[in-house]
């Protein structure tokens, strides 16, 4: 009797301990980043383009715009494809195509982001002899895709078969079951995977180095080189000049704020709609 109670108490302690510990690195990193980057954070920073070393008022507006544009296109391409593929894998999971897809998605999930960048470079940059935002978006889509697919598959595997049977009983076609019951019905769960994927891809540098390349100027043109926050941060952080290094940290703060905002806004957005499963 006591043994069970003791096990319970140990378990409680472990859970609380480990959970609190997960917040420690988050706190440390945020504190470090904000301390280093706070000094340069200003409206100037958000709305101005970069200046040379020694000149005041430089900013990263071009990188902010570039990042947002690239991520927007990448999300539109990869998230629907990923959700559909993930649903396919959980519904038709015994078919040949599903096994092949699963293997390939697994390989893509483990591919370093630089290899994805190299692939996008060879396919979209070299033939057209131009760096472009589209190539950058493709590279980021390939980063987002496996995460969305895999998490959608995992989440849908846990939906009880009764839901699908109810759909069939109502005369739904497979497509309707797919769309209404599985995807729409598990919006929040699928969204978790989507947000995880988008958060990760917004912070990736390597895929963009050889594809979107980077730009010193503000550009809205995805057909040519376009800047992005991770690349700009990387360039500045590697330079010897202290003001650029400080701006790199500030860029990091801005990037984190943007990703946080995406996280929180989408969670609010989805939890307002109804869910059709047993939550």
């Amino acid at each position: 009797m006591y043994l069970r109670k003791i096990k319970n108490i140990i378990f409680w302690c472990l859970v609380v301990g480990f959970t609190l510990s997960t917040f420690v690195p988050l706190f440390l990193i945020l504190k470090h980043t904000i301390t280093m980057g706070w000094s340069e954070l200003s409206l100037d920073f958000i709305f101005n383009t970069p200046r040379a070393v020694g000149e005041l008022g430089g900013g990263m507006s071009h990188a902010i715009v570039g990042s947002l544009m690239i991520i927007f296109v990448a999300t539109i391409i990869s998230v629907p494809v990923g959700i559909v593929t993930g649903t396919f894998l959980s519904e038709f999971s015994n078919s040949r195509l599903a096994s092949i897809t699963r293997t390939f998605i697994g390989i893509l999930a483990g591919t370093p982001s630089i290899v994805i960048g190299i692939f996008a470079y060879v396919t979209l940059v070299v033939p057209w002899k131009s760096f472009s935002g589209w190539a950058g978006s493709l590279a980021l889509s390939l980063v987002i895709l496996p995460i969305v697919t895999r998490s959608t598959e995992e989440v849908l595997k846990l939906v009880p078969t009764t839901i699908r049977e109810a759909g069939l009983a109502l005369g739904f076609t497979k497509v309707k079951i797919f769309y209404y019951l599985l995807i729409k019905g598990n919006k929040r769960a699928i969204l978790t995977g989507v947000i995880l994927a988008i958060s990760r891809s917004m912070g990736e540098t390597a895929p963009l180095l050889f594809t979107a390349f980077g730009n010193v100027y503000l550009s809205y043109n995805l057909n040519g080189p376009i800047s992005s926050l991770p690349v700009q941060i990387f360039n500045y952080a590697s330079s010897p000049h202290l003001e650029w290094q400080r701006q790199a940290w500030t860029g990091a703060v801005v990037l984190i704020i943007i990703i946080f905002a995406v996280n929180i806004v989408s969670k609010i957005f989805v939890s307002n709609s109804s869910n059709a499963s047993n939550r």
């Binding site: 990193i29 980043t33 958060s199 917004m202 540098t205 990037l255 984190i256 990703i259």
Partner: peptide
């Protein structure tokens, strides 16, 4: 906890 994923890898 999800916000840890939001931190860019370069940071």
């Amino acid at each position: 906890i999800d916000l840890i994923a939001a931190i860019p890898s370069i940071v």
